[in-house]
Amino acid sequence: MKRKKLVIISHTEHYTDASGTICGWGPTVHEINYLADYWEEVVHVGCYYSYYPPPSSVAYTKTNITYVPIPAYGGSTLRKKIGILKKMPGIIRTVKKQLIGATEVQLRTPTAMGLFLLPLFTWFWKRDYIFWVKYAGDWEQEKPPRSNGWQRWFLQKKWIDFPVTINGFWPHQAPQCYSFENPCLTEENIATGKLIAATKKFEPPYVLTFVGRIDHVKGVDRILKALSPLPHGIIEAVHIIGDGPERALCEKLASQLPISIIFHGYLDRATVHQFLSASHFFLLPSSNEGFPKVIAEAACYGIVPVVSNVSSIKHYLHENNAYVWDINGQQTFESVLGEAVFSEKLQLEQKSKKIQELATLFTYTSYFNKLNKLIFKETFN
């Protein structure tokens, strides 16, 4: 039996494509498309942008999903950041209206509107529905942005009487905080990934792939520096998928290296998976993360990760299934990448098999089962 109405509130970017169809950030929309099978009605309240959508955006595929726009907010300047104050009353009215008839409500944080929505849900709005908060940021970050840090602090307090899902497993975790994996894979993905991984040969020249935002936090500049000393012939190609403020600078740096480094910009999910399926190593020397879904997507195809040990990444990746760079240690990312590409074939094959096991934790099926058990406290018939 289906539940009645799920309301999701997030800052997910939405756009209108050339055909007039509303589309949004792929990972979130894929997840909502899956969840829609279990509710009569799903409402997603999210930010709307008037410019053309990037290739990473996709349309909703289920007819019982309704997208409700709220104005975009935020930016790099103080003036843009505080601009949300003018938009706050309209956002509150929109959210409050959509709560009518809801049986389940999820608020996705950290986001600037969490600063006022969290107190409203906690103390001022009557909740006759199941309510939970997803905190997708780095739960361990020492110096988070003030907004993120306040929301994390708020969600750990004793006054919280609703579940909070977080990335990773932490000492002294508040009782209302549940460790959850971010879903991104279907059972079909897992089956296909196993077949592809079984044919992967860990012999040079290797194909390396990065997926994410191109800036210093994600570490594309670190990747380029680490590639420089590698001998000719050991790397076939490096695929950089994504975009960001430092793309032009990184492209200039890459042009000085004797390696085929291709910047693809944003790509749709199917194309990203094609590149992942043909890769040997997945690179992410990031200095700040929650838990990126793309690590699980790469794991599905038996790609060996070469990543930093920030936040909850270290709870899932270790010496048995990856090459993990201690960002605060003495070893450089350059030496970790070198260790990876010069490893014995058997060692790489073993890590590839182990990392595939990790992927099964990140299926939509596993996620929904966990929601039933820990958030809804019941099982669907």
Rank of each mutant, 00 (worst) to 15 (best):
S76C: 01
M1R: 04
I327L: 04
T186R: 06
P163V: 05
P119F: 10
G24L: 06
I70D: 02
T360N: 02
S228A: 15
R152G: 04
I240E: 04
N369Y: 04
E140G: 01
N189H: 15
Y178A: 05
M88G: 04
V272Q: 03
K2A: 05
L120P: 02
N321A: 11
K353T: 05
D326C: 08
K345Y: 03
Y301M: 06
K354P: 00
S260Y: 10
P54G: 04
S179M: 08
L6F: 13
Y364F: 15
I262Q: 12
A298Y: 08
D138Q: 11
M113H: 14
S76M: 09
L371K: 09
Q256H: 10
Y52C: 06
K225T: 15
V307Y: 04
G302F: 06
F162N: 03
I240A: 04
Q331E: 13
L115S: 10
Y129S: 09
Q256V: 03
T365Q: 15
G302C: 01
F281N: 07
I261R: 14
Q274G: 14
F124R: 11
L337T: 12
A36T: 10
L317A: 12
W123Q: 03
I355K: 02
R269L: 04
H11L: 01
I65G: 02
W325S: 11
Q106E: 15
F333I: 08
E251Q: 15
V133Q: 06
D243G: 10
A198S: 14
V217R: 15
Q176L: 07
D17T: 11
A254K: 13
W159L: 06
L118M: 08
L284Y: 12
L185F: 09
I32C: 05
F291M: 14
E142R: 14
V95A: 09
D37G: 08
L185T: 08
V211K: 00
S147V: 15
N64C: 03
K225S: 14
F116C: 05
F342A: 01
H232I: 09
A136C: 06
I82F: 05
S343P: 01
S279I: 07
R222C: 03
Y34Q: 09
H14D: 04
G244H: 05
E236Q: 12
A72Q: 06
R127V: 07
V341I: 15
Q347G: 02
G83K: 10
K97C: 03
G290I: 07
G265V: 13
I241C: 05
Y51M: 01
T332I: 01
R247N: 00
S286P: 13
F380R: 02
P110N: 07
T66M: 01
K194R: 13
V105C: 06
L374T: 08
K5A: 06
M113C: 06
F342Q: 02
G212L: 03
G219D: 10
K353C: 03
N288G: 05
L230M: 08
K218P: 12
V324A: 05
D243V: 12
F368G: 00
